[in-house]
């Protein structure tokens, strides 16, 4: 006969607490690095998606469709186990020494998220009246310069709430990195479970952390929506 006894002390102090804390830090680090890269890449893809050149547009479209329609987990496995055949040897060696699992997870998360961000940015751009682009062009700006100075700054401002949501998704998706041995939050919770057989406590701790993260960030987005976007709409 088994009786489960709860022991919350194991996750609030000692070795297991250290593990969970280390996991949280890794999750935040992985998410922060990936969101910055994903934003830059997404911006590039969004601009390419609206370019005049057909091949460029098609490339961007193919990129979007492919990476949005493939599971992130498969992409993570591909970059971790499969990329050695397509990456140059010296990059491979360097990554192996510095810890390939973190890099592979960051690459997969960046590429996957960039595809979603690109579409968010594109809808932001489409919401800017066409006349602005025409006005900028007739004032002598090139296409890229008009994008850079006139359209994108406005589009990005509108896109901030969906972008923050993408960041939240990314933080949650980063849990998949545990499958290739990145010691993030979920990995550590699982680790605590397998060492102590205290699954409930470990998973509760991890869940609370994820929830606090989403509550705080969602609250910030709501605040931004009310304070910044509405103020401007009213003006």
């Amino acid at each position: 006969m088994l009786n489960y006894t709860f022991d919350w002390s194991i996750i609030t102090s000692g070795q297991y607490f250290d593990w969970l804390l280390a996991g949280l830090i890794t999750t935040l680090k992985l998410s922060a690095i990936s969101i910055v890269l994903a934003f830059l890449l997404g911006l590039l893809i969004a601009v390419m998606r609206m370019a005049h050149s057909k091949p460029v547009r098609w490339f961007a479209l193919a990129y979007l469709e492919f990476f949005r329609n493939t599971p992130l987990l498969v992409q993570i496995f591909f970059w971790y186990f499969g990329s050695y055949k397509i990456l140059p040897v010296f990059i491979n060696d360097w990554l192996n020494k510095t810890g390939f699992e973190f890099a592979a997870a960051a690459i997969a998360l960046t590429i996957y998220t960039s595809a979603f961000i690109a579409e968010d940015i594109r809808s932001g751009v489409l919401s800017i009246p066409k006349e602005q682009m025409e006005a900028a062009r007739s004032a002598g700006f090139s296409y890229l310069r008009s994008m850079q100075y006139i359209i994108l700054p406005q589009a990005v401002r509108i896109t901030i709430p969906p972008l923050v949501n993408q960041f939240l998704n990314l933080a949650k998706n980063s849990s998949l990195a545990m499958t290739i041995g990145v010691m993030e939050m979920t990995y550590q919770a699982r680790q605590v479970e397998s060492y102590s057989f205290k699954g409930f406590e470990a998973f509760t701790a991890a869940t609370v952390v994820y929830l606090v993260l989403s509550i705080v960030i969602t609250a910030l987005v709501n605040l931004y929506n009310e304070k910044v976007l509405n103020v401007h709409k009213a003006a």
Partner: peptide, 16 residues
């Protein structure tokens, strides 16, 4: 609550 959790966490929870 559910939207704040990674799917992986939901799976682990259900599993338990």
């Amino acid at each position: 609550l559910v939207r704040g959790m990674p799917l992986l966490m939901v799976i682990f929870w259900m599993y338990f």
